[in-house]
Write a protein that binds this DNA or RNA. Structure first.
Lengths: 210, 210
DNA sequence: AACCTTTCTGACTCGCCGTCAGATTTTCAG
DNA sequence: CTGAAAATCTGACGGCGAGTCAGAAAGGTT
């Protein structure tokens, strides 16, 4: 397997081109954050790196392809989260570790929220490539979460009306979406610590039954 | 206060125009569902009702305005959900009532998911009007949820590390987002009943502490 | 029927998308 | 160092959808 990066026409690209491609990706991420996916235009991305639209199409067939690449890069940053779930949380340090997981998740979300939001929208609208990337990212964490729930059910701390896979999905869903609400919750008085502790309490309860 | 409906230029419209406006809203909802917000074009909406783009602009300043109207209509359908949360769930019938709430929420979501997704995207991207509509919709249910959590903390069934407002937000977040995952979860073996029961169990636990 | 009001639309300008031929820059053999 | 080949970049263009407006069409009133 090769680490070569390809242009839109399939040829392998050199270091100058690689740098241009990188600048395009960074500009895409920046504008996605500033303007949102609905107002993201290839013209603006190109202009941002002092180049012409044609250059963008040298490296990506369309804007989606660039966003997809960014989504894949974001997935990389999700991998370290798994370590915070293993081994399973126990009664001694479980709640504290749940808090650390939430902290790490918040940093991850803050770093990538514009890209993740775009990824999720595309996935929900049925785009297979974005679905695949989202599923891969979610499964990373969900495998570990699912194992925790299964263990909780086996030791009778959790009711067997919980389906482990669905519970894992629910936990991911809660983390993702609650953080999307944060700006508005802040206006209504819920500060970062309240959110952190509440989320940690809910996760600790749902995953371990303690 | 009047129930008059206005055209984009502010004049009150008659019954023929009202019917046209209705057709445009219905077509917008349909195409939003079929094609997603990223590919929603005024040309298509107009064509769908056998009319010209100019007609659309008689009634809405842009596509957002039509979607906002649909989002307001969806909020109406959320109101009945509140009744399922009052009075608070107790040990006798609580779990069963949680299940009924989840059922109703699923129907609500299935009916309006395309519009709600668009509403949420716009709200998350910072659009104040969509934020206001989303907040209003969420508060409907969250007020009741928050009361349940406050009661659970007062009776020591729930830990006081939970912030009632945040917990209510987390519950709404979980419902909303988990349902968005549903199509993919189905592929991995989680059927409707598993989702329903898991969600009901999690809600019952998080809201009442039972 | 003549006139007035409401509603609809053809036709236009503008800006972005995506393409391609050719210009520019870099590489490297001799 | 030089000149030719390879890699990279871009000006300019056709096509399409957004949004506007003047005037056409439909409907209502007397």
């Amino acid at each position: 397997m090769s680490d070569d990066v390809f242009a839109a026409d399939g040829r392998v690209i050199g270091s100058r081109a690689l740098a241009t491609r990188r600048k395009l990706l960074d500009a895409t991420a920046k504008l996605l954050q500033e303007q949102g996916i609905l107002d993201l235009r290839v013209v603006d991305i190109s202009r941002d790196i002092g180049s012409s639209p044609a250059t963008f199409y040298q490296y990506f067939n369309d804007v989606d392809e660039a966003i997809l690449e960014l989504a894949k890069e974001a997935t990389e940053d999700e991998k370290p989260l798994v370590a915070l779930l293993q081994p399973s949380w126990n009664e001694t340090d479980g709640f504290e570790r749940a808090g650390r997981f939430v902290d790490a998740y918040m940093v991850y979300w803050d770093t990538h929220h514009a890209v993740l939001r775009a990824r999720n929208l595309k996935a929900e609208e049925g785009n297979r490539y974005f679905r695949a990337v989202r599923t891969e990212a979610n499964l990373l964490v969900m495998d570990a979460l699912q194992a925790m729930v299964t263990e909780g059910i086996a030791t009778k701390r959790l009711p067997d009306s919980l389906d482990p896979f669905t519970t894992a999905a629910a936990v991911v869903a809660m983390c993702e979406r609650l953080l999307a609400f944060r700006p508005e919750m802040a206006k209504r008085g819920a500060n970062r610590d309240a959110i952190r502790n509440t989320l940690a309490t809910l996760l600790y309860g749902a995953l371990t039954g303690h």
